[in-house]
Design a protein around this nucleic acid. Structure first.
Length: 245
DNA sequence: AGTCTATCCTGCCGGC
DNA sequence: TGCCGGCAGGATAGAC
């Protein structure tokens, strides 16, 4: 979308796909090509993007933006209703990957690291967690859920998060992501689908996200919705105080 | 440097 | 009924 389609095609024709990796929310297709051509195809689904392989000659998906014929008879299809997604050729995928923060399910993401990293900045904790260069892979839904689980108000200054609260937050982030992956994602708005075309199941486990005015599952106080950094933000005013313990 | 704000895009929902 | 304004959100460019 918006790029130079001709150059995109020129860089891909004849390229061989090597490893396929994920880093944060990015999908990386390493390309085995020589002579200075782009070395990786980088994809991002953003809100509504979908990638799938359909039989060559089959009907394009409703909002197909890119179709790439593969040599095994399939067609790689990138479909995106809102055109927020990206599919870009880059020379060095490690450049992009290196700019991202640690993987929240990786070994380096733990309570001690998180506490130190939070205290190295002075920013509201929610926008910081959404910053992909701080931690890679967290989106709006899971940040709201993690902050609730940790009992942290979304506007808490990052350098005021206590050691104990940072430990709760690290546990919450890992637990929620692990559970959400088990349930194959969150499909509350009808957009997100698994590669098999089925909705995920985590939406039924959401405790604050999209639950404004509904009772908190812990204390029954009405869940509040505010806007933080242009993002809808949901929290329990009783369970998530501004001062962390 | 670090932090904040506007922008992209379109299907859906609520209000009149 | 039908129309239309407003809302949702990840990343990024540009502003301060």
């Amino acid at each position: 979308v918006g790029g130079d389609a001709r150059a995109f095609a020129r860089g891909l024709v004849g390229a061989r796909v090597g490893a396929i990796r994920r880093r944060g929310k990015f999908l990386l297709f390493d390309l085995d090509v020589a002579d200075g051509r782009p070395a990786a195809l980088v994809g991002h689904l953003r809100m509504t993007g979908r990638m799938q392989v359909r039989p060559r000659g089959s009907a394009p998906t409703p909002h197909e933006c890119v179709a790439l014929d593969l040599d095994d008879g399939g067609t790689f299809s990138f479909d995106d209703v809102r055109k927020f997604g990206r599919l870009v050729l880059v020379g060095d995928a490690d450049e992009l990957v290196g700019a991202l923060g640690p993987e929240p399910l990786g070994a380096s993401f733990d309570a001690a690291w998180l506490h130190a990293a939070l205290h190295a900045r002075r920013r509201a904790v929610k926008p910081l967690l959404l910053d992909q260069t701080f931690v890679a892979g967290l989106g709006n839904i899971y940040v709201d859920e993690a902050l609730f689980e940790a009992g942290l108000h979304p506007l808490t200054p990052s350098n005021r998060v206590s050691t104990r609260a940072a430990a709760r937050l690290a546990d919450a982030v890992r637990g929620i992501l692990t559970r959400a992956i088990e349930r194959r994602g969150t499909s509350f708005d009808g957009f997100y689908r698994t590669p098999e075309g089925r909705p995920g199941g985590y939406q039924s486990e959401l405790k604050v996200y999209d639950r404004a005015q509904e009772p908190c599952v812990v204390c029954a106080a009405p869940i509040r919705r505010i806007v933080v950094g242009q993002r809808g933000t949901h929290f329990c005013p009783k369970c998530q105080r501004r001062i962390s313990r």
